[in-house]
Design a protein around this nucleic acid. Structure first.
Lengths: 228, 228
DNA sequence: TTCATAGTTCGATCGTAACCGAAACATCGC
DNA sequence: GCGATGTTTCGGTTACGATCGAACTATGAA
C-alpha cells in the first residue's frame, strides 16, 4: 500500500514548534543568522543548530556562509508557498496562537510575504489592479493584460524582463491575516522592490512589517485607488 | 515573536508515518473504516484508533458511524488540497518511497484524486479540453469557455448546476506522478462521475486506480483526442 | 440469549528526538 | 600571535508519543 511521495518526512520537519517558528520567520524573505533563528524559536543556539541542519538536509533551507555568520533562507519559492499554504489552512481552522485581534497593526497593514507585499495594502493593490483592468482574474489564476503592461511601464516596471524569467509573472497568494488574495510572482516582487527603491517604504529590522513613509503612503493610495 | 497561525500542529499531525499513510489513502476520496486504515498505516487497531482520534481532533478527518463500522473521510476539500500539495512538493524534492518507475501501471494510467480523475488520463483530458478551446488556461488558473460549456452539455454535464455551487468550477491540480496539471474542482468531479455512471470505468476495491472498460477506453480516447 | 466483529480505553514499555552544558572549531579585529 | 564572537559537535538527561496487550463497550447475527 505504500505509494507516492513521502509527506511524513516534511510534515515531521515542519511539525516541531521551534522549526515551524523558524520557517515562519524566514517567510519574511530576509536571510537570518543561526543566532537570530534561535531567538525566534525560543531555544538555545546549540539546539537551533541541530534543527537547522535537519531542515537543510530535508531541502527546506539553504545556507550561505558569509564571514563568521551563517545566513539561512528558505530553499526556494516552493518552500515559501508550502509554508504560506499551511498557514492559510491553519488559519482557516482557527489554529491561531493569537486571536486575530487588532494586535500588531503595522503587520496587518503591510508586511512582506517572502518577497512581495501582503496584508491590507497587498490586498488593496491587487483589488485595485483588477478593478482598473490591469490584471484579469480568471478562475484561480491571474493574468497581466495589455493595459496593465502599459500602466506598469509607466511606473517603471520592466515587464519584458520579468516575462523572460521562468518564474510565473502573476500568482495569487492567499494570506492568513486577510484571508484574501494578494499578488505574488515576479511581478509582485518587482512592485514591492520598486516601492522600496523609491523610498516609499522600508523594511523593519526584526519583523515582517513594511513601514510606509507619509509621502509613500500618499503615492501608494493614489496609485492604487479603491472605490467605496 | 509568536505571530500567525500554528503550522506546527498540523505539521506534527501529518508528520507521523502511520498518519501520513492514512491521509494519503483517504485522498482516494473513499470513506475507509478504522480497520482498513490500520492496514494502510501498518499498525494495530488500537494504535490506529488513537491516531484517528488525534486527526479528528485536529480537524483533518470527519467520521460517520454506520452500524458497527466507523467510516473516516478527509474533513473537506481543503484538507485534500493540502495533502496533495504536500505530495507535489515532496515529489519535486525526490522524497519518494518508491522510485517512479513503471510500477503500478494502472495507477499511473488513471486514478482518483479525492474526487476527480488524475494520472495519465487526467492529464490527457485537461490537455485535450484546452487544445479544443473548451477550457482556457490563464496564469495559474483555468476557466471554462462558452464553447466548453456547450460541448460539455453535449455529453450530459449540467454546467449550470455546478456553477451555482460555491465550490470553484475549475481548478488545476498538480499531481505527483505526472508532474503535470489535471482538472479538479466541481467540473473535474462531474466528469469523473459521468464516466463511472456511463459504465466507461469503475473504481477498484482497495486502490486509487480507475479501470476503464475496453468500450469506455475507446469512448474516452475519442472524446479527448490529443495530437501527436 | 450467546457469539462474533468493530472499535475504544487503559496501562505499561520503549525509542527517539528535543534539549542544554561544555568544549571544539572557525573567522574576524587587533 | 591574541581574544572576541558566531556556530557546530559531543555527551548525557529528559520527556513525550508511538506502540501494543488486555480489558471493556457497542452493534449485528444466529
Amino acid at each position: 500500500m505504500k505509494e507516492g511521495p513521502d509527506i511524513a518526512q516534511i510534515g515531521a520537519l515542519i511539525g516541531d514548534p521551534a522549526r515551524a517558528n523558524m520557517l515562519a520567520a524566514l517567510t519574511g524573505g530576509r536571510a537570518l543568522t543561526a543566532t537570530e533563528l534561535a531567538g525566534v524559536g525560543g531555544i538555545t543556539l546549540q539546539t537551533a543548530s541541530s534543527h537547522l541542519a535537519k531542515l537543510e538536509a530535508g531541502g527546506l533551507l539553504a545556507q550561505r556562509k558569509q564571514g563568521r555568520h551563517r545566513y539561512f533562507t528558505l530553499a526556494d519559492e516552493a518552500v515559501a508557498r508550502l509554508i504560506e499554504s499551511m498557514m492559510g489552512f491553519a488559519a482557516g481552522r482557527g489554529h491561531l496562537r493569537h486571536r486575530p485581534g487588532p494586535k500588531e497593526p503595522a503587520l496587518r497593514k503591510a508586511r512582506i510575504c517572502y518577497d512581495h507585499l501582503a496584508g491590507d495594502y497587498g490586498v488593496r493593490m491587487l483589488d485595485s489592479l483588477i478593478a482598473s483592468g490591469s490584471i484579469a482574474a480568471v478562475g484561480d489564476g491571474l493574468a497581466l493584460t495589455e493595459k496593465g503592461e502599459n500602466d506598469l511601464k509607466g511606473i517603471g516596471i520592466d515587464v519584458g524582463a520579468l516575462k523572460s524569467s521562468r518564474r510565473p509573472l502573476c500568482r495569487s497568494c492567499l494570506d492568513w491575516s486577510e484571508r484574501r488574495a494578494h499578488l505574488a510572482g515576479s511581478l509582485g516582487k518587482a512592485l514591492l522592490s520598486s516601492f522600496l527603491d523609491k523610498g516609499w517604504a522600508r523594511r523593519t529590522a526584526e519583523s515582517r512589517s513594511i513601514l510606509f513613509s507619509p509621502e509613500g503612503d500618499r503615492q501608494f493610495l493614489r496609485l492604487f485607488p479603491v472605490e467605496g
